[in-house]
Amino acid sequence: MTLTHDERWEIVWAMPEWKEHDRLVELSNEHFDRMFGLIDAMWAIPARTEAGRKSKVLVLLACVLDLRGHDDELDYRDLLGRRLLIEFVGGEAAASLRESFAA
């Protein structure tokens, strides 16, 4: 017996694991909504110092682009993009960012 696409999904949606997944996703929505609100507020503040640029780059890498892995864990494009962002930070702040992502 072959199930249709809809029939397979009905089985999945009836599973307790799926219901728990939905519950956890719903709980996380409040966290992410608040996080995105804070990110929007942060973008409105100009970054005039190395520390300010570093903070914005860290938020971009960790929360928006999800590029938190070590250098050897990223594909080539993501690695180059992260290196360019870190270069824009400049100074000692950039050096500390480079160290934090080194393998």
Rank of each mutant, 00 (worst) to 15 (best):
W43C: 14
V64K: 02
E99R: 15
H21S: 03
W43A: 11
S55M: 11
E10I: 00
L60E: 15
W43N: 14
Y76R: 12
A62F: 13
G90L: 09
D71F: 01
D22C: 10
A95M: 06
P16K: 12
L61R: 07
R53L: 11
E30N: 10
T49W: 08
A51W: 00
V12M: 12
A44H: 08
L84C: 00
R34A: 15
D6S: 13
V64T: 04
E87G: 09
W43M: 12
L80A: 13
R53H: 01
H21N: 12
R68E: 05
I86S: 02
S100W: 08
L27M: 10
N29M: 04
R8F: 06
L79V: 09
G91H: 12
V64P: 03
L61V: 09
L60R: 14
L84R: 13
F88Q: 15
F32I: 14
L65K: 05
W13G: 00
D6P: 00
K56L: 06
L60W: 05
M42F: 10
A44K: 14
L58C: 09
L97K: 04
R53W: 01
D40F: 01
D33L: 12
E30V: 15
M35V: 13
H21V: 01
W13M: 07
W18I: 00
V25M: 05
I45F: 01
M1P: 03
A93P: 03
L58M: 14
F32C: 07
E20N: 09
G69A: 12
M35G: 03
D40Q: 14
R77E: 15
D6V: 01
R68N: 05
L80K: 05
L61Y: 05
H21C: 02
R98I: 04
R82W: 02
F32S: 13
L27K: 01
E73L: 08
L60S: 10
Y76S: 14
L79F: 12
W18P: 00
G69Q: 09
L97G: 01
L61F: 04
I45W: 02
L80P: 00
M42G: 01
E20W: 08
E87D: 15
L24D: 13
K19M: 07
K54F: 02
H5Y: 03
F101R: 00
F36Q: 15
M15A: 14
L97D: 03
I45P: 04
E10G: 05
V64M: 11
H31N: 03
F36S: 13
E99W: 12
L58N: 10
F32N: 15
E7N: 03
S100T: 08
D66M: 11
L38I: 01
H21E: 07
R8Y: 03
E10A: 15
F36H: 09
V89E: 04
T2E: 09
F88T: 08
D40H: 06
V89Q: 05
D72K: 13
R23W: 00
I11W: 07
D33F: 02
E30D: 13
A102Y: 07
F36K: 11
A95N: 15
T49D: 09
L38Y: 10
